[in-house]
Amino acid sequence: MSRFLNILAAVLVFLPLPVLAGKLGLGRPALPEEIAAWDKDVRPDGQGLPAGQGSVAQGEEIYLERCAACHGDFGEGVDRWPVLAGGQDTLTDERPIKTIGSYWPYLSTAFDYIQRSMPYGDAATLGADETYAILAYLLYMNDIVDDEGFTLSRENFTSITLPNQPSFRNDDRPRIEYPLFRDRCMTTCKDHVEITARAANVDVTPK
């Protein structure tokens, strides 16, 4: 009898928990208004773009008021705040400048990000028209559109492509790097060793 109980106990322990088999019925349905309040992400194919539009001139005005204090009147970045314009043809330089114009692959990223996180310290306060306008101005500052009268809208949004988009490819470390890094040499792995650089000479470590 006790043996039978033991076996039964063992079986019970190893049975998958019944709760794992199906849904638990936890949570409640999300309401459409709730989803609309939080789901504001925008994809490169335009999914998620709100209705609206804004011109370069409108964008300049909003930008100067709400962004320029940190990012500079021309997107050049004040002090160490991020640079938003320029840097074209610097990606192979010693100090590449990565901006929407020089590096970013998709314009949708900028719409999504500005609406999501900017202005820094006062996020989630820009309306759709304002965001389109700021972006129109950023495109103008980055020489991606050269028409001062340009207006960006949901309708023409996906017709704009950023120049650096073709430069991105998926992670190729498994193919390029992993086969090279397999040598666990233990003895006489090099002929001689000398110090070629020292952090002390750079002297940037906080005291």
């Binding site: 990565k98 590096y103 692959p105 998709y106 949708s108 990223t109 999504d112 990000y113 991105f168």
Partner: peptide
């Protein structure tokens, strides 16, 4: 979604 943190940042030049 190609968010800022997987394009502008956290990509390897």
């Amino acid at each position: 979604w190609m968010q800022r943190e997987e394009t502008s940042k956290y990509t390897d030049l």
